[in-house]
């Protein structure tokens, strides 16, 4: 992993880190990948990936309304809101 990759990664994950810290972060990540990379030697081309241990059919629900809205509580829980909306710094498109 190099510096450019890390910068891209930090951006995708929306995490900021001081440039001075970058080498240390790269080293930490690299250490973990050294552990992970042990699996690269396994030839598993004949295996299907397993996403979920219970290979069951998904359930669905009936299309029936249930009201669990509590607008005021939701808005009160947010860092910034007015009486109707969640507020964020102006998004410039």
């Amino acid at each position: 992993m190099d510096k450019i990759e890390l910068k891209n990664l930090l951006f995708l994950a929306r995490i900021s880190a001081d440039e001075k810290e970058h080498p240390k972060i790269i080293e930490k990540l690299q250490n973990t990948f050294n552990l992970i990379d042990e699996m690269q030697d396994l030839d598993l081309s004949n295996l299907e990936p397993l996403n979920n241990p219970l290979e069951l059919n998904n359930v669905s629900r009936e299309d029936v309304n249930k009201n669990r809205n509590s607008k005021n509580e939701f808005l009160d829980n947010s860092p910034e809101s007015d009486k109707d909306y969640f507020l964020v710094p102006k998004i410039i498109e």
Partner: peptide, 20 residues
């Protein structure tokens, strides 16, 4: 992320299959 998915995520899911 693009370019690493197969080597990491997919391979890991296959290891998972192997263990199961």
């Amino acid at each position: 992320s693009a370019g690493f998915y197969d080597a990491y995520y997919l391979q890991a899911q296959k290891v998972r299959r192997m263990i199961k």
